[in-house]
Amino acid sequence: MIVSLRNYLDIILPRIERAELEGNRQEAARLLRLLSSVALEQADKLYPVSEGAQTMSGESKAEKIVAGINDATEVLGTLVPSIAAIGGMVRLIATVVRPTAAQQAQAFDAAIAEFDAAKAGLDAAIAGFEAAKAAAAAKAAEG
């Protein structure tokens, strides 16, 4: 899928740029939507609807993304070259779609595991100081 998407980008990006250079924004927008459908497919693989991923407003993820892409295409595509619209589209998909509850739990567990490991590191450093301090005190007592 990733290879397929990259191929799409390789093929479609030059065509979008050419369409814009020729002032054919309708064609550029059409190509962007074509690209977005592939990106949407990829997003669905990352955050499957079957696992509960949806937007906060309750719209289906697909509706929200498509609407967002259309907006981005319309707004950004007319202001700056389409490459910016694609950047906007990619960010839009990433920010509209939220991780599933399982993905959130996994991220939290990983964060807590790292937290606990960091605490163990701190405790080891403190223990190192205490050991050195005790050794210095013992040496002073001997002297």
Binding site: I2, V3, L5, K45, L46, V90, A94, R98
Partner: peptide, 12 residues
């Protein structure tokens, strides 16, 4: 890198 890593990075 392909879109998937980019998406994952932005999402996190």
């Amino acid at each position: 890198l392909g879109l998937a890593p980019a998406l994952s990075g932005c999402a996190s």
